[in-house]
């Protein structure tokens, strides 16, 4: 039976799409979080570092306590702390955001590896979140397998999309965040505390990045290793631009990127004659191409990457 599989046969297409949904999970958490922070005007390049530390914390706590939920909580807490550190440097001390983010990344990479060495030391695995078939929905042919047979963190990641949309576009908090991101001086004159809004946005984004890490170490790979994320956080930052700061657009980007990745894996499995190095390149090329060819609706927060100092302008 496997002999008849081609890249366009139904089981393969189903497999690709199911993989895409699964692979998109960490990108979704992290990119939606980054979009919230950027909407308030703070570019956080340290996403990868937060993900790493979140992944480590989740894994370590789950390994020692046996509770996955405590692990998730730990990842969120670590995310919050990293968010506070980033805010302190970038908002209160008004540092160059690009560079403080790279610093944060290095700290996250270093501390997570260091703690891993000291506390765990070798490769171990946990029993992570099990696939959870949603009753009825998961029985739908094809669609059920693609969408409704995943583990809890996968569903949660997709749930953040409408939640973030609602939060940013439909609540007064969201409006404040956008106001601060587009015109901090005006927001300030209206009595909105720019710094406080930026702190909250960056921290919320960082908590989501922590969750992105946890989704890796507790659901997708069920282990921790030094530099587990391998640069996923940077891709997540790129996806924010792909999605034009809109959660739905980010979801589109994450799904596209992941689907192409899954596609190239299947091409290799099905022995399609193409050098693997070139196949691996596909997701990156197509993501650029898709953004280049799609009509751009992006509205970059005007004050992105600009520290706000009252009375400076």
């Amino acid at each position: 039976m496997p002999e008849q599989m081609t890249i366009f046969s139904l089981p393969v297409v189903t497999g690709i799409l199911a993989s895409a949904v699964r692979l998109a999970t960490p990108y979704l958490f992290a990119a939606v979080g980054e979009a919230i922070g950027q909407s308030s005007g703070v570019l956080n390049l340290g996403v990868d570092g937060i993900m790493l530390l979140g992944a480590y914390a989740a894994f370590f706590v789950a390994l020692t306590t046996g509770s996955l939920w405590l692990g998730v909580l730990a990842a969120m807490l670590v995310g919050l702390l990293m968010g506070l550190l980033m805010s302190l440097i970038s908002v209160t001390l008004k540092a160059e955001q690009g560079i403080s983010g790279i610093g944060l990344y290095m700290v996250g990479l270093g501390v997570s590896s260091l703690l891993f060495k000291v506390t765990i030391g070798t490769v171990k695995t946990v029993v992570g979140f099990k696939p959870l078939k949603i009753p009825l929905l998961s029985d739908i042919p094809v669609l059920g397998e693609i969408l409704f047979q995943h583990s809890l963190p996968v569903y949660a990641a997709f749930l953040t999309v409408p939640l973030a949309w609602w939060f940013l576009d439909r609540t007064s908090w969201g409006l404040k965040i956008k106001a601060v991101g587009h015109n901090p001086t005006a927001a300030d004159s209206l009595g909105v505390s720019v710094d406080r809004v930026r702190y909250a946005s960056v921290c919320l984004g960082a908590v989501l990045s922590g969750l992105a890490g946890a989704s890796l170490s507790l659901a997708l790979v069920n282990l921790f290793q030094e530099n587990l994320t391998a640069g996923m956080g940077f891709i997540a930052v790129a996806l924010v631009y792909f999605g034009g700061w809109r959660p739905v657009g980010i979801m589109g980007g994450a799904l596209l990127f992941s689907a192409v990745n899954a596609f190239q894996l299947w091409m290799q499995v099905l022995n399609v004659k193409i050098p693997s190095d070139l196949a691996v390149m596909l997701p990156y090329v197509l993501t650029i191409a898709a953004l280049a060819l799609a009509p751009s609706l992006a509205r970059q927060p005007t004050a992105l990457n600009k520290p706000f100092e009252r009375g400076e302008h």
Binding site: R22, A230, L265, V280
Partner: peptide, 20 residues
């Protein structure tokens, strides 16, 4: 059948390759 992920450190992609 073989898959090469192109990265020594991308554990997540390696896991997905196995699932594939």
């Amino acid at each position: 059948s073989k898959t090469w992920t192109g990265s020594f450190s991308n554990v997540a992609l390696m896991a997905e390759a196995a699932k594939t």
